[in-house]
């Protein structure tokens, strides 16, 4: 069997569009995850014990169960509860919530990586609370967060094909639709694999470079 390049060029507008849809949904989900993670991180550092415990239970349950089944759950249950959302929005919400449990951990680890004496020094200088947080702690905490968040963005991006199971026409589903007409499964699915590889491999090289630079800064 020979690889039909002409066919791929023919359908390239559809594939290009689907790639953009995939990237757009990934970015939206990740932005949501950044916000959800922040809320979860703050809640799990709260002095109110039941809240801490509830957040722990929620994030463990989300992390220990398959994203695919969570997508099914939301896709079939939300309409029954009277909440009608598009498949795309449902997907963004579920993936954003799922990855929010991961970004929460990154935030917490980042804040904990700031040495204790920074807090002590700030209080010895009797700096106000918001100055301590925004001028002392967070600037130091954010730096190690960046590569870790980058890695989760890449991981999240690779989950996007799961959205095909809830009828979202992202890259994989689009390729399947095209293949069901032309029967060019080999060309189309190889192309989809290559797109994911090129995008996530180059992104992971960027993250690696950030990590190396950070090690040097110490």
């Amino acid at each position: 069997m020979d690889f039909d390049w002409k066919y791929l060029v023919e359908v390239s507008p559809e594939l290009m569009w689907a790639t953009l849809v995939t990237i757009r949904l990934a970015v939206l989900s990740f932005l949501l995850a950044l916000v959800v993670g922040l809320v979860m991180a703050l809640a799990s550092m709260s002095a109110f014990r039941p809240l801490r415990y509830g957040i722990w239970l929620l994030s463990e349950s989300i992390r220990l169960t398959p994203l695919l089944v969570q997508l099914f759950f939301a896709f079939f249950v939300l309409p029954e509860a009277g909440i009608r959302l598009s498949a795309e929005l449902t997907g963004v919400l579920v993936i954003g919530l799922h990855y929010g449990t991961y970004t929460a951990q990154v935030y917490i680890a980042g804040i904990q990586s700031v040495k204790r004496d920074q807090w002590e020094a700030a209080s010895a200088l009797s700096l106000p609370r918001h100055v301590t947080w925004f001028k002392i702690i967070l600037p130091q905490a954010v730096r190690p967060m960046v590569p870790a968040l980058g890695n989760y963005l890449i991981q999240l991006f690779k989950e996007m094909p799961l959205l095909s199971t809830i009828t979202v026409f992202e890259l994989l589903n689009t390729a399947n639709l095209l293949a069901s007409r032309s029967f060019r499964y080999f060309e189309l699915l190889t192309f989809v694999g290559l797109v994911f590889f090129v995008l996530s491999y180059s992104a992971s090289r960027i993250v690696q470079r950030l990590e190396v630079r950070q090690d040097r800064l110490g």
Binding site: M1, P161, L172, F186, F197
Partner: peptide
């Protein structure tokens, strides 16, 4: 290659694309 592509895509490839060759 395996870390850079999505597991779901790999599965589709193995099941739908491989039979073509």
């Amino acid at each position: 290659f395996f870390r850079g592509t999505s597991a779901f895509v790999q599965l589709y490839w193995a099941y739908f694309a491989l039979p073509m060759i």
